[in-house]
């Protein structure tokens, strides 16, 4: 793992003008994400975690401060297709098969048919959906659909993966399984992952770095480097180290609320 910063934000500020007056969504956000890190953003709703992710993606424009992705502005990075984005809902096109959905970004980016076929096969294997290429989304469970949407984000060569509560709508058993799979996938692909969640165990289990955020205005209240080893079986969640870490995150969330 090198130490170069893939994503770096300095004094980031974002205010939305709404009908009810300005909303201060992000205030003075400073953060560096290094290559190969798995960073979770956790906080109550309205803390700006999704907004920050959208700033990284160039889907929102900060009102002040600087942010760079791979040394470029987020908009340049978006044009350079530097990241894959996974939304809370799978958002697969119902009229395309699973294979067709994964081909979508590849078609848009102009990959050849042969490259498309190779990549679809490769990412389907990565998310363990081999054999489902010809199925339509409605023939798959919610968890499988979300895996297909992760495959879609992995299909092109972005080395950053931005995930906005991707498992938020799934039940806990499916979520555990997907978390485990995501860690394996991260280990195999060595991508840099920014992951928004509101689940403390999920954040602690997955991350090398946990960013605790608090609302009104949205800001970072704590950044915790995880001491957990990179290899994490599910039962690591019963270890004292894990529980202590979860406790610290919870304290951070509570502190953010108290002075918020």
């Amino acid at each position: 793992m090198t130490t170069e910063a893939v994503i770096s934000a300095r004094n980031l500020d974002l205010t939305f003008e709404t009908n009810d007056g300005p909303v201060h969504a992000l205030k003075d956000v400073n953060l560096e994400i290094k290559k190969g890190e798995f960073v979770s953003f956790i906080g109550p709703s309205g803390c700006g975690k999704t907004t920050f992710l959208r700033c990284i993606a160039g889907l929102e424009t900060p009102t002040a401060g600087e942010i760079s992705v791979n040394g470029m502005t987020p908009d340049e990075a978006r044009r350079a297709r530097a990241y894959g984005y996974v939304f809370q809902a799978a958002g697969l096109y119902p009229w395309r098969t699973i294979g067709g959905n994964i081909r979508l970004p590849l078609e848009i980016m102009g990959y050849t048919k042969k490259q498309q076929a190779e990549r679809v096969a490769r990412v389907l294997e990565l998310v363990e959906l081999e054999g489902f290429e010809q199925k339509f989304p409605w023939q798959l469970s919610g968890g499988m659909q979300q895996r297909a949407s992760i495959a879609r984000a992995l299909a092109f060569d972005a080395d950053v993966l931005l995930m906005d509560e991707p498992f938020g709508a799934l039940d806990e058993i499916v979520r555990d399984h997907l978390n485990e799979q995501l860690l394996q996938l991260w280990a195999r692909t060595e991508k840099t992952i920014a992951f928004v969640t509101h689940s403390i165990p999920e954040a602690v289990y997955l991350s090398t770095k946990i960013v605790v955020m608090s609302p009104r205005p949205g800001r970072i209240s704590d950044v915790i480097e995880s001491p957990l080893p990179k290899d994490r079986p599910l039962d690591i969640r019963d270890s004292a180290q894990f529980i202590e870490l979860a406790h610290r995150v919870r304290e951070g969330l509570r502190a953010g609320h108290a002075d918020g």
Binding site: A57, G58, R78, Y85, G91, L104, I108, M109
Partner: peptide
């Protein structure tokens, strides 16, 4: 969300 997805693909 669908439109955002396409934006992320530029």
């Amino acid at each position: 969300m669908q439109l955002d997805l396409l934006r992320t693909y530029h």
